[in-house]
Design a protein around this nucleic acid. Structure first.
Length: 718
RNA sequence: GGGCGAUUAGCUCAGUUGGCUAGAGCGCUUCGUUUACACCGAAGAUGUCGCAGGUUCGAGUCCUGCAUCGCCCACCA
């Protein structure tokens, strides 16, 4: 046997597909199919389900590679690991892709109607929904495909309804009329956490309000003013407390084609701490229907009226008066500034940078406006989460995240869970036709019509916030609400690995849902991994065009080198500045591994070897065995602490600089049995240790190593 | 505005509880076609460890202040 029989270079593309197929066919991704499966200790990990509409980006690739390293290690350590894959239906984003498609065909969502639209979304899923699966396979992830879930699959939908009904029974669900973030394009409310603020140039206007002066960047909301607020201790305005003052304003009944006229209106001046005496004039105009802060003032002073002047499309409505009705918000702004100026009510205009809220999904401007929505009361649920966290039922990595979570929960508000979308989980709530409709919460439509209006019940059009369903991911994926064996075995999971971005949106919601429905937190460890920034150290984003496609990397260097490069950089939970160094190092390392194998192959001679630990007597064999033992010990400790990069560095250094540079070189001059047995022992050990990181090449070489009684490397014991 | 973190070789980063003559990978210089690998080997150069103070026998490591950068959160009427 000669090393020349093996090609000089390892070609990843020639083996990757084949090896993944072998793994899949072996069934070993499924923990139940592992040898001695019932004696193994479970180790479970849920993949953060990517949006079905998206593609895998480098962040996903890194996150899932690290998870896979852990899962593969645990599998080899004799655990029963479940790495469960799946996808999220991605409410707004899902609706968006199909809307765009329709637009290309000259159709629209509203034109084809809800039923047809939802059908189209499912069609889209059939066509493109599996793209992500293919990408995950191309990362070499050892996930159990037989257990893969989708947040809109049948069982999941049932579970989501169950949860809603459960919350309702406990009295947590209610309908509330509040100011919400309204996307004027998506036509739905969105969460605070999905609002993106962008600094924009604008103007700061000072406007005469009777005896007072007020500053604002949104003068058009003047039409919805129902009060003024001053700080209770502000001496300047004490005389006005709780008094109505008469102010001159624009007569909004005069049509636009006529010159503006003045009109007199009365506004009450209320004392409220929200007003900052140090900012501007210290007086706030209160527009409760179109500002969160103002709405909160209204809640403290319910005597203040609420007037809605902007509609769902971002246009002024009838309450804005004939002069402004129908204008878009920014047009109305121009108009009213002009009018106020002509009437001598505009004191001054200054340039002013302020942050404007945009929809994270579509980029359109968010209008805060008054709306009727469904809420979940967070008091009890958040309380339970806080308690568990304070009792250290969950470990945070890095530990600083614990306080961040607790602080956030401390200031939590009730959760607006309804969205005015068509793609998502329908809310199991039914209403009658009465003017003050009655609500019925149940899986199916109530049998008997409403007693008052005698009309049949209709299901609410709203769907649930995507995070309502993804918050249930850790246990619905295991079969909840049924009492399944999977739940028994795999809940709670060992850890959750996630980006900082969704720490509150997702992680928090999984915590309280897990506690509420399963009685204990859904994971023992929350690992907040680093974010990959671009080569300039800036966050990657589609709009900046600085995102890196991991699939292209795989095309270039192969799966193993890609995985190597991703993990190589994770030295802490500190963010990572993108660079190609690690991928090059990875590629070179694979070459080294391959060629050292070719050399060893040539050294071995004929015959089959065993994996017995050699009894070492020579200096160089003793040394390499000692170093090998130390390295494996260190590496396993590091992985236990989720120090992925450091573990890989350790292995790299040992393999290259100790095993190859020193031991292998020395072995050239020594063909004793002891040296040969040490060679094969340490080499095979390294293949095992390296397998979680670079599974393909190691599995392939393993298939060539002349060892007795070997199975696939993926289930070898380490 | 609040929180967290970073700042070490040309570049990307290690450097655990203070003991460093400060390391790795890439790049660079010189040499080497030795029974795997030139995607290699051997040898080597390169740093006032962001700035200013302080604690200490001793500080890249601890403390204070400053500067720059980044991420997260909140948001200004």
């Amino acid at each position: 046997m000669k090393f020349e029989d093996l090609p000089k270079a390892y070609e990843p593309k020639e083996h990757e597909e084949e090896i993944y197929r072998i793994w899949e066919n072996s069934g070993f991704f499924n923990p139940d199919a592992l040898p001695n499966s019932d004696k193994r200790k479970p180790f479970s990990l849920m993949m953060a389900p990517p949006n079905v509409t998206g593609h895998i980006h480098v962040g996903h690739a890194m996150e899932n590679t690290m998870s896979d390293v852990l899962v593969r290690l645990k599998r080899m350590q004799g655990f029963k690991p479940l790495f469960l894959p799946g996808k999220d239906h991605a409410g707004i984003a899902g609706q968006h892709v199909v809307e765009k498609e329709l637009k290309k065909e000259g159709k629209s969502r509203t034109a084809i109607g809800r039923e047809k639209f939802v059908e189209r979304v499912w069609d889209w899923m059939d066509q493109y929904g599996s793209d992500i699966d293919q990408e995950l396979k191309r990362l070499g992830l050892s996930v159990d495909w037989s257990r893969k879930r989708f947040t809109m699959d049948e069982g999941y939908q049932k579970a989501v309804e169950e949860v809603f009904i459960h919350y309702h029974k406990k009295g947590y669900i209610y309908r509330g009329k509040r100011v919400v973030n309204w996307c004027t394009r998506c036509q739905t409310t969105i969460s605070d956490l999905e609002v993106e603020y962008k600094e924009e140039k604008g103007n700061f206007y000072e406007i005469k309000y009777g005896p007072l002066t007020i500053g604002t960047v949104r003068p058009e909301t003047k039409l919805g003013d129902t009060a003024l607020a001053v700080h209770p201790d502000d001496e300047r305005y004490k005389e006005y407390h709780n008094k109505e003052i008469e102010i001159e304003s624009v007569d909004n009944t005069i049509p636009r084609n006529q010159p503006p006229k003045k009109a007199k209106i009365n506004l009450i001046v209320i004392p409220d701490e929200e007003a900052d005496p140090g900012f501007g004039t210290g007086v706030i105009k209160v527009t409760p229907a179109h500002s969160m802060a103002d709405f909160e003032i209204y809640e403290r002073h319910p005597e203040v009226p609420v007037t809605k002047i902007i509609d769902e499309f971002g246009k002024m409505n009838e309450n804005a008066g004939a002069r402004y009705q129908g204008l878009k918000v920014n047009e109305a702004r121009e108009q009213i500034v002009k009018d106020l100026d002509e009437l001598g009510l505009l004191i001054k205009t200054e340039e002013y940078d302020h942050s404007v809220s945009h929809c994270e999904r579509c980029g359109a401007i968010i209008e805060p406006l008054l709306s009727n929505q469904w809420y979940v009361s967070m008091k009890e649920l958040a309380g339970a989460a806080t308690k568990a966290i304070k009792k250290d039922k969950i470990e945070f990595i890095p530990p600083t995240r614990k306080k961040v979570m607790l602080d956030w929960i401390d200031n939590i508000r009730d959760w607006n869970i309804s969205r005015q979308l068509w793609w998502g989980h329908r809310i199991p709530a039914w209403h009658c036709a009465c003017t003050e409709p009655e609500w019925h919460i149940s899986h199916t439509k109530p049998d008997t019509p409403c007693k008052k209006c005698k009309k049949t019940w209709k299901q609410t059009e709203d769907v649930l916030d995507t995070w309502f369903s993804s918050g249930l991911w850790t246990f619905v994926t295991l079969g909840w609400p049924d009492k399944t064996e999977d739940l028994e075995t795999f809940y709670p999971t060992a850890l959750i690995s996630s980006a900082r971005e969704i720490f509150f949106l997702w992680i928090f919601r999984m915590i309280f849902s897990g506690i509420e429905f399963m009685g204990e937190p859904p994971f023992k460890v929350i690992y907040t991994h680093p974010t990959i920034l671009d080569s300039q150290g800036k966050k990657m984003s589609k709009s900046k065009g600085n995102v890196v496609d991991p699939m292209k990397l795989i095309d270039e260097v192969g799966i193993d080198a890609t995985r190597f490069g991703l993990v190589w950089q994770v030295m802490s939970t500190q963010d990572i500045q993108w660079s190609l160094g690690g991928f090059r190092t990875g590629k070179k390392f694979l070459n080294k591994l391959w060629n050292s194998w070719r050399f060893i192959y040539g050294q071995l001679g004929d015959g089959e070897y065993t994996l017995e630990r050699p009894k070492v007597t020579l200096d160089h064999t003793k040394k390499i065995i000692a170093e090998y033992d130390e390295t494996t010990g260190t590496v396993n400790n590091m992985l236990e602490k989720l120090e992925f990069g450091a573990a890989l560095h350790e292995l790299y250094d040992f393999y290259w600089h100790h095993f190859c540079d020193i031991f292998l070189e020395g072995a050239k001059k020594d063909d004793s049995d002891e040296t040969r047995q040490t060679l094969i022992y340490v080499f095979a050990g390294c293949l095992k240790q390296l397998h979680p990181f670079i599974p393909f090449i190691t599995e392939y070489i393993w298939s060539l190593v002349p060892l007795q009684k070997k199975t696939l490397l993926i289930v070898e014991e380490v």
